[in-house]
């Protein structure tokens, strides 16, 4: 119990929370764009895992930044199927989303299976070093935990600012919101609903892929099947928990990561509590936040419904 009084315990947990949050931030921000525009992307898990594998396979022979970018493009490629099938051909979004998740897991598993010799070398990258923010990272206790991270984390925070701006200050962002709320009304005002939804979905594919790439290149470095371990679905939890706000998604991702790290850490504090109970902590916190925020949260009214334009 005495560990709980030590500052290092908490600083380690905060740092862990930020590391665990990083892939979630990319993925959940992308998905927030899509959902604000009315597209329920259950293929996020698929985008992430295909981004993870592609980033590794490119980064191994070349460089991490290139791999990172390709990871995003791979996610976008998978998302283009969502565009084709759901947005353009009006197939049910839930069905296509699940289909794309299976497709992503299957494709990555198969590529890994076929390109790895048993007992041979797997593709691998070494993990990035931390980039400390000067001065701030020297603050005692929390300094290093908050201000000493890899560039994937810093980039994700930069992305939050850009995405927040795009969502609330650009024409695209406002049109996306309009399209997600009431596509008929938006169309009546001359907004090209399908185009906006297409763009939002591709953004979510790209960022989902980047999330997988950040997971791979930032904290794992070597592929295993099912490696994303439902993080795509956790990103969905984060978005709803954050009531479809970009800033909220970033904070929600951190909150989730923090409590996940806390669960790991408490194993050595409460030795007798079963690990399953500790692992339930972040989900329980999500439920509490969800319940509290339900007063003001409002789901985009057009979420999950296809828009069929008048021919």
């Amino acid at each position: 119990m005495s560990q709980l009084l030590e500052a290092t315990f908490w600083s380690a947990t905060v740092a862990g929370g930020m590391r665990l949050a990083t892939p979630l931030i990319y993925a959940s921000i992308g998905e927030t764009f899509a959902q604000r525009a009315g597209v329920l992307n259950l293929g996020l898990e698929g985008y992430m895992i295909i981004g993870a594998l592609s980033s590794l396979y490119v980064a191994d022979p070349t460089s991490a930044p290139l791999g990172f970018l390709v990871g995003g493009l791979a996610g976008m490629a998978l998302a283009s199927l969502m565009v084709l099938l759901s947005i353009r051909l009006f197939a049910n979004q839930v069905v296509v989303g699940f289909g794309l998740t299976i497709l992503g897991i299957g494709t990555t598993g198969y590529i890994f299976h076929e390109t790895t010799d048993v007992g041979g070398r797997d593709r691998q990258v070494s993990l990035p070093s931390e980039i400390d923010i000067p001065l701030l990272s020297d603050i005692p206790w929390l300094g290093d935990a908050v201000f000493g991270h890899s560039w994937y984390t810093w980039l994700s925070l930069g992305l939050v600012i850009v995405a927040g701006f795009v969502a609330s200050r650009t024409i695209f962002g406002l049109q996306a919101k309009a399209v997600g709320e009431d596509p008929d009304a938006a169309a009546a005002k001359g907004v090209d609903v399908l185009r906006i939804r297409t763009q939002a979905t591709l953004i979510s594919g790209f960022l989902g892929g980047l999330g997988g790439a950040a997971l791979m290149l930032g904290s794992v470095g070597r592929f295993q099947p099912y490696l994303t371990a439902n993080r795509g679905f956790i990103a969905l939890i984060v978005i709803i928990m954050a009531s479809w706000s970009i800033w909220g998604a970033a904070v929600g991702a951190f909150v989730f990561g923090f409590f996940e790290a806390l669960g790991f850490n408490l194993n050595n504090v409460f030795v007798d509590v079963p690990i399953e109970g500790l692992n339930a902590i972040p989900f329980f916190v999500a439920l509490v936040i969800l319940t509290v925020s339900a007063r003001w949260a409002r789901m985009p009214r057009g979420l999950g419904q296809n828009y069929v334009p008048t021919v």
Binding site: T8, A229, N265
Partner: peptide, 15 residues
């Protein structure tokens, strides 16, 4: 969940 294993390891090292 490889990332979770990485994080658990980091926490143990930090402790």
């Amino acid at each position: 969940d490889v990332q979770a294993a990485a994080e658990v390891t980091q926490q143990l090292i930090d402790q």
